[in-house]
Design a protein around this nucleic acid. Structure first.
Length: 928
RNA sequence: AGGGCUAUAGCUCAGUUGGUUAGAGCGCUACACUGAUAAUGUAGAGGUCACCAGUUCAACUCUGGUUAGCCCUACCA
């Protein structure tokens, strides 16, 4: 807002203590002080200077009337008010009729702020004064908050209207200015009343005027002749030769959030809780609370506790909890009521002693409670203090109030206190988090909560705060209606840690839905399709033994229980985002993309047998446990799927009292960790398998060799014997996944292996220090012979300058170089080479698989049932002759064909088999 | 003004006690696979790790400073 600001000239009194500022007794010396609130000037009692700031005395002429004057202001502010070009002008009065007069000046003295301390001046607007003020106020004091960023470096100090002012004035022993009356023998009333009007003592000119223009009714303040009080004061000062400069000044000023009018700071009597007395204990106990993020607890909250001020409880309002404090009129005696029972006794006592006929009000709020009169120890009536208690006290008292503790429910309270966990916005650090803590520490010497998450804000997708005026608010109800609660919840938690601000993007919810929920749904759908066909249900009493399950089954079970571990660990540490991401990775990368993809055949091939049983049980367990882990974040989706998976066996489970007896997933017990199901070696083996497959597929891609085309051999250069044993465990899996016939290890013995070394910077760094770079270069230049020597001897010396280092195998990362003449690919320490040569046998098999694929596509196009048996007729073509001859039975079993015939022509459209071959394929259901 | 958080690919985010090819998903492009098919895989393009200085053999990582965004508290004489 824009206000009239004024630089007032405070006339220094000529005394012994100020003599250094005067050249002679008649010199007019003024101290300049700036204010944007001229209405506080009648309340001025002191001028505050920075003790170490330099001030200058400047001889010049008063800008409004050209009278000689000497002004004091901060040296740094000189250039703001004096044009350096005018420092040389002859010292004579300027012409006041000029619009922009050149005002001559001379800097004649420089002093430190602390030297000015104690200098007395004449009261600027002497409407109200007392002998005490005359003796002790109206002088210069020092304060550390003074700056020279704006104004004059001298702060006009009116203790009633500013906390800093109040503090420095008190420290300096400046008395209060104001109106004394019978009700206020100690503390005078301020010169502005609670309506925002100057008191009558300010005379006809100002008495009764609102100090802010906004407080006037619109019809008054909009009048052309209307002048705001700030301006009237400025003009009064100008007329009296007390103003140095008057101008409009735009600044931030606090406004009431309801009326949008400027507020004024106003001194009020208040009741405080002496929180500062227990700040050490609060800080101490705070250290036992697990803050998430930690920095809010130690930083924002911890530092706030260290500088803790007393807690002002009083609020001048009507609705709320009344302060339970009664005082005698003279304030000598007081009591604080602690319960309804005490109040009743107090009322009875007062009735008896004061001859009253009061009843204890059933409603303890205003206005009823205000009517209650109690009696003091000496027999005087006591009335309630009119104020209410800060509503934040209510929030902090919540743990006790909710149980009406200590009057009732002691047991349930003690069982549940302190709280295990609370969460609120980080903006509540000084609100709820504090009030809970303060009350707990002061009343119970305890924390109120053991764990706390202070969550960040939800911003719009650009990172701006959502606000109605900007129109960037996302409607939560629409979002939930459109995208569902589960995907929304999951997105909120998985996208960013709760304590980070979240850039909310609706597309992120779609991504979550497709990626996690879509994949899980697909996996479930796949499972349900075949489980229904086979009429399979889980039998909790006959779990297929884990040790008899396949490598792949045991692997995904191991992954699952590793996930259980990780989930519990992260959740225990209040890291829900990490827990959610671990689940996402399991579902997408491991369960769907590896386990199901590689296991599909087991579900649809053949009749029920041990392997199929194991596959069903494994996938079923993975789904169920995953759902359970997800259930707190995605309550609806998981419950729906849980019931789909378990409803058929509910009766049996209830009868047998097994874990699945519960109708809802939210009633089940969270799965316990089970280390016996975790096999780290197996997980490592499978990791090798995944990487090896990925490498082989990338070679196929480069060489344009489709996966249906079988290849003869995969070569795997190996660096140590354990690698062979590990890969052997997953060999079959690799070969079938990449459609290769055999896997061959390439070792030193083959003579094909060419190795190179690279420095392991981590181990070598500590060993070699400055010579690191030279040593690393030496290692990279090693030839096979040197590397073999290292492996044989367990060490190899490298000399740099005069230092010799014994390099051990741990210091070197070995890798194999590409095998000349082979197609290779490398990922870290793993290299694979693929034999890409084809022969007639391999080509025929590849074509057979192409045929299977085409026939399957036709089955699908024709919407055949997956169990339908068929007859197939193929148009004769030389390209497929070998394939049909050698792989006819294979084709038939794959496509559930009872007959596969080669005929001259078929009544069907030609199907493209590859770039060169197209032929007619006729597929009909057997018996039709 | 003080305190706190954040800054990495077009977007959303990972990145362990500093260690040498900085990753993922989405999006884009190409290809493949397919009895999960409105699904899936592989590959490609895409980075001054906000900026500056310091410590170190080595800094996205540690220290100091700067800038920008946000939050809290105070003040705005």
């Amino acid at each position: 807002m824009t206000d009239f600001s004024v630089i007032a000239m405070f006339k220094v009194k000529h005394e012994d203590s100020s003599a250094f500022l005067f050249d002679d007794e008649n010199e007019d010396v003024r101290i300049l002080a700036w204010t944007t609130t001229p209405w506080t000037l009648p309340s001025n009692v002191a001028l505050t200077v920075g003790p170490d700031i330099e001030y200058v005395k400047v001889k010049t002429f008063s800008p409004y009337n050209a009278r000689p004057v000497s002004v004091v202001l901060a040296k740094d502010r000189l250039s703001a008010y004096f044009n350096a070009e005018h420092a040389e002008l002859p010292m004579q009065p300027f012409d006041t009729s000029e619009k922009k007069p050149a005002i001559p000046y001379r800097v004649v003295k420089t002093v430190k702020g602390k030297d000015l301390s104690g200098v007395r001046y004449e009261q600027l607007l002497p409407y109200v004064t007392t002998p005490e003020l005359e003796a002790n106020a109206f002088r210069v004091i020092t304060g550390d908050f003074v700056t020279t960023e704006d104004g004059t470096g001298v702060v006009h100090t009116a203790p009633y209207f500013g906390a800093d002012d109040m503090r420095v004035a008190r420290e300096a022993g400046i008395p209060m200015i104001g109106i004394y009356n019978d009700q206020n023998p100690e503390l005078p009333l301020p010169l502005v009343d609670r309506q925002g009007k100057f008191v009558e003592e300010l005379g006809e000119e100002f008495g009764g005027r609102y100090v802010k223009a906004e407080y006037y009714p619109k019809e008054v303040s909009s009048d052309k002749e209307f002048k705001p009080t700030d301006l009237l004061i400025a003009l009064r000062l100008k007329e009296d030769n007390k103003a140095f400069k008057i101008e409009k000044y735009a600044h931030n000023y606090p406004h009431c959030w309801r009326t949008d009018k400027p507020v004024i700071y106003y001194p009020l009597d208040s009741w405080f809780i002496r929180a500062s007395a227990s700040k050490e204990r609060m800080a101490e106990l705070n250290k036992t609370i697990n803050w998430q993020p930690e920095s809010t607890g130690s930083g924002r909250f911890g530092q706030w506790l260290e500088n803790l001020q007393d807690w002002n409880l009083s609020r001048s309002r009507y609705w709320g909890v009344p302060l339970p404090i009664w005082r005698t009129e003279d304030g000598e005696e007081a009591c604080c009521i602690g319960s309804v029972e005490e109040l009743k006794q107090g009322v009875q006592q007062a009735n008896a002693q004061l001859g009253l006929n009061q009843e204890t009000p059933a409603d303890l709020h205003r206005p009823y409670i205000d009517e209650v009169v109690l009696v003091s120890a000496s027999g005087k009536p006591m009335r309630r203090e009119a104020d209410l208690i800060d509503v934040w006290f209510d929030s902090g008292a919540m743990p006790y109030a909710q149980w009406h503790y200590p009057f009732e429910n002691q047991e349930v309270f003690e069982r549940n206190y302190p709280a295990d966990f609370i969460a609120e916005g980080v903006d509540q650090t000084r609100g709820w988090f504090y009030t809970l803590h303060a009350i707990a520490v002061m009343c119970f010497d305890s924390v109120a909560y053991k764990n706390v998450v202070s969550n960040g804000l939800v911003l719009d997708k650009e990172g701006n705060k959502m606000s109605k005026s900007k129109g960037n608010v996302v409607d939560p109800f629409l979002t939930l209606a459109d995208h569902g609660a589960d995907a929304t919840r999951w997105y909120l938690i998985s996208n960013a840690s709760p304590w980070d601000n979240l850039k909310f993007n609706i597309e992120g919810i779609t991504e979550t839905r497709n990626k996690l929920f879509g994949t899980l749904y697909n996996t479930y759908n796949f499972f349900a399709l075949y489980a229904n066909l086979d009429g399979w249900t889980m039998d909790e009493k006959h779990v297929f033994p884990y040790e008899k399950r396949s490598e792949l089954d045991r692997w995904i079970i191991s992954k699952l229980y590793s996930l259980v571990d990780e989930y519990r660990r992260e959740m225990d540490q209040y890291e829900p985002t990490r827990a959610a991401r671990a689940i996402e990775s399991f579902v997408d990368d491991h369960l769907s993309n590896w386990y199901v993809r590689l296991s599909r055949r087991r579900f649809w091939k053949g009749n029920m047998n041990d392997d199929k049983q194991a596959a069903y049980q494994t996938l079923w367990e993975c789904l169920l446990v995953t759902l359970q882990l997800m259930s707190s974040l995605a309550p609806f989706f998981t419950d729906w799927m849980y019931r789909n998976l378990t409803t058929p066996i509910r009766g049996k489970a209830k009868a047998g009292n097994t874990p699945l007896r519960f109708d809802s997933i939210h009633l089940t017990d969270l799965i316990e960790p089970d280390n016996s199901k975790i096999d780290a070696d197996l997980e490592k083996r499978m990791d090798y398998a995944q990487r090896i497959c990925s490498l082989a597929l990338s070679i196929r891609k480069k060489e344009r060799l489709r996966v249906r085309q079988p290849l003869q051999k995969l070569l795997l250069p190996v660096l140590d014997a354990s690698f062979i044993a590990e890969v052997d465990g997953v060999k079959e899996l690799i070969l079938s996944e990449i459609n290769v016939k055999e896997l061959e290890y390439v070792t030193d013995a083959s003579g094909m292996l060419k190795k190179s070394g690279k420095a392991n910077f981590k181990t070598l760094g500590a060993k070699c220090g400055k010579d690191m770079k030279a040593v690393a270069a030496a290692i990279e230049s090693w030839n096979d012979a040197q590397i073999n020597q290292l492996e044989r001897d367990g060490q190899l010396p490298v000399t740099v300058d005069k230092n010799t280092y014994a390099i051990t195998p741990d210091d070197v990362v070995l890798k194999t170089e590409d095998l000349p003449g082979w197609k290779t690919a490398t990922d870290g320490s793993i290299t694979v080479a693929l034999d890409v040569t084809l022969n007639a046998q391999l080509e025929a098999e590849g074509l057979a698989r192409d045929l299977v694929n085409r026939i399957q596509n036709i089955r699908k196009d024709k919407n055949f049932n997956v169990t339908d048996r068929i007859h197939v007729r193929l148009e004769k073509h030389p390209a497929i002759a070998d394939a049909v001859a050698h792989f006819g039975e294979y084709i038939k079993s794959e496509v559930l064909a009872d007959a596969l015939l080669l005929v001259d022509s078929v009544p069907a459209e030609k199907v493209e088999l590859n770039d060169d071959v197209a032929l007619g394929i006729d597929v009909v259901i057997n018996g039709l």
